[in-house]
Simulated assay, not measured.
Amino acid sequence: MLTPRFFQAVSLALVLCLTSQPGSAQSKPDDKKGPQPAQIDRNGVLTLVRSTILALQHANQTGNYTVLRDLGSPGFQQANTAARLSEVFADLRGRNFDLSGVAVLEPQLSLLPQIETNGLMHMAGSFPSVPLQVNFELLFAPDAGRWKLFGISLNLGQSGPTPPEPSPAVQPMPPKAPAKSQRLPSTKKPPQPTQP
């Protein structure tokens, strides 16, 4: 379990993006109910996840969130100015945490890419790293035949499972006395010498 000491949530309000332009992220109305698996290959997923988090890393390094904003979908751009993004990610930037490791680490998806009923592609997962794990949740909107950032939630947590609490000391049992060895009488007759 992650404790507040190891867990710092940094998120860009997804609700703002979702409600800013009703219907702007929808591709086509879908009669199917519920989320559907997204038709995207592994390389496409890796490209979207890594490029998005690296864009955030570059914005944090430079303090310039214009490119991150410009890479987003129209709904993302309308809901967020570069100054607002700077405010949202001020804590992460202040902690000077380097996110560039996502370029070489393999993400572990906890939510496979799926198309929500509003047409957005949704995915979530983590990059297990040391000393902190990078957890992410991303939304992408279709725009001119490409997926563009619509929402991002990023938090840092403790990497890997925490070790169990040490158990109370167990008193050693006194050693047992060695068992006496008893020789059982043999039931075999000794071999008889043979005469020539």
Score class of each variant (00 low, 15 high):
158 Q>G: 08
49 V>A: 00
129 S>Q: 14
4 P>H: 00
116 E>Q: 13
38 A>E: 11
195 Q>I: 10
174 P>S: 06
61 Q>C: 03
75 G>A: 11
27 S>T: 15
78 Q>K: 15
156 L>T: 01
3 T>L: 10
131 P>H: 13
5 R>W: 05
155 N>E: 06
107 P>F: 03
123 M>E: 05
10 V>Y: 13
123 M>Y: 01
17 C>Q: 12
160 G>H: 02
34 G>R: 04
145 G>D: 10
58 H>Q: 11
11 S>D: 08
39 Q>K: 14
42 R>V: 09
6 F>A: 10
85 L>Y: 01
41 D>V: 04
28 K>W: 15
12 L>C: 12
124 A>D: 02
190 P>E: 10
104 V>T: 15
169 A>E: 04
191 P>Q: 09
97 F>K: 10
23 G>Q: 10
118 N>H: 03
115 I>Y: 05
31 D>Y: 15
20 S>R: 14
159 S>Y: 01
86 S>L: 03
87 E>G: 04
26 Q>M: 14
190 P>L: 11
87 E>A: 04
193 P>A: 13
103 A>S: 13
79 A>M: 05
160 G>T: 01
4 P>I: 00
164 P>A: 06
80 N>M: 07
44 G>V: 02
116 E>I: 06
62 T>W: 02
168 P>V: 00
33 K>D: 13
2 L>S: 06
102 V>C: 03
97 F>V: 12
3 T>K: 09
96 N>W: 01
149 L>C: 07
146 R>E: 14
172 P>Q: 00
72 G>H: 07
77 Q>P: 06
18 L>A: 14
192 Q>A: 14
133 Q>R: 15
98 D>R: 04
78 Q>Y: 10
194 T>C: 12
111 L>S: 08
94 G>Y: 02
179 A>V: 07
136 F>M: 09
125 G>C: 08
181 S>Y: 09
71 L>W: 11
142 P>N: 14
91 D>V: 10
37 P>Q: 12
76 F>C: 05
165 E>K: 08
150 F>C: 13
140 F>K: 09
162 T>C: 01
133 Q>C: 14
5 R>L: 07
10 V>F: 14
133 Q>G: 11
36 Q>P: 11
137 E>D: 15
103 A>M: 07
116 E>T: 13
91 D>E: 11
191 P>E: 10
77 Q>A: 08
68 L>E: 06
166 P>I: 00
154 L>R: 02
6 F>M: 09
13 A>F: 08
139 L>Q: 13
